[in-house]
Computed example of a mutant assay.
Amino acid sequence: MTQITIFHNPACGTSRNTLAMIRNSGVEPEVIEYLKTPPTKERLQALLAAIGLAPRALLREKGTPYAELDLANAKWSDDELLDVMLAHPILINRPIVETPLGTRLCRPSELVLDILPNTQQGAFTKEDGEVVINDKGQRV
């Protein structure tokens, strides 16, 4: 059985679409609702290293305390940004997916297809009606 982990926010459409594409590949992933169970600092650092991003690149602005905390200010060190992301997990952009083929921030959600070990098991349409995988199993 292939191990896949998704750091998921069920209130996020991109995250829901990503989770659905993982399931459409025939795998039930480990789902970590990171707002309820934030990663440790070490885990977040490992995810960033695997993705190849600096902490600032993983910050989410929309619907977060980004502006109130003045996170656009360059004064914040990477270590301080990690601490503030863990104190306010809503600042961590999502979804992050780990598979044996790699780790990605899956925005847009179709990026997950590049790291899924299994092909899609049928057509897939996003919540907004956008077709991602057609009825022939081809990526659109």
Rank of each mutant, 00 (worst) to 15 (best):
E33P: 03
I32N: 04
V27S: 13
T37Q: 15
S25I: 13
L19E: 10
P39I: 04
T40G: 09
P38D: 15
T14S: 15
K41H: 11
V31A: 01
Y34C: 11
Y34E: 00
P29C: 07
L44T: 00
R16Q: 09
L19K: 12
G26E: 14
P38Y: 13
V31E: 10
S25R: 05
S15V: 09
E28R: 03
P38G: 09
P39W: 10
P39H: 04
R43C: 06
Q45R: 06
L35A: 05
L48R: 08
G13Y: 04
I22V: 07
L19A: 14
T14H: 12
C12K: 03
I22Q: 03
Q45F: 12
A46P: 02
A50P: 05
R16T: 11
T37P: 02
E30A: 10
I32M: 09
S15K: 08
P29Y: 11
K41G: 09
Y34A: 05
T40M: 01
M21E: 03
I22W: 06
A20W: 07
L48F: 00
R16C: 05
P38C: 15
A46R: 04
R16F: 07
L48N: 11
P29A: 14
R16M: 01
A50M: 06
P38M: 08
N17G: 00
T14Y: 11
V31L: 13
E42H: 09
T18L: 14
L48Y: 01
A20S: 10
E33C: 02
K41M: 08
G26P: 00
L35P: 04
I32Q: 12
C12T: 04
T40W: 01
T37M: 07
T37D: 13
V31N: 12
S15F: 09
P39A: 01
V27N: 06
L53Y: 09
V27Q: 05
A20Y: 02
A49G: 00
Y34S: 02
N24H: 15
N24E: 08
K36T: 15
S15P: 02
S25W: 02
Y34P: 02
G52F: 03
T37C: 13
T18M: 08
A50G: 04
I22M: 05
C12Y: 10
E28C: 13
A49I: 00
K41Q: 10
R23V: 11
Q45D: 03
T18N: 14
S25K: 01
R43E: 15
I51S: 10
I51G: 03
C12P: 02
A49Q: 14
S15C: 08
E28W: 12
G52R: 07
L19P: 11
P38R: 08
P38Q: 03
I32F: 13
K41P: 08
N17I: 05
I51K: 00
L53M: 14
A20M: 10
C12S: 15
T40S: 15
A46T: 15
A49N: 03
P39G: 06
G52W: 09
G26Y: 01
L48V: 01
T40A: 02
Y34G: 05
E28Y: 07
L35G: 04
K41L: 09
G52V: 08
A46I: 01
T18A: 15
P29G: 00
E42D: 15
K41A: 06
R23K: 05
L44Q: 00
S25E: 12
R43H: 04
K36G: 12
R16V: 14
E33A: 06
R16G: 09
S25D: 03
P39L: 07
A20G: 03
P29L: 14
L47D: 10
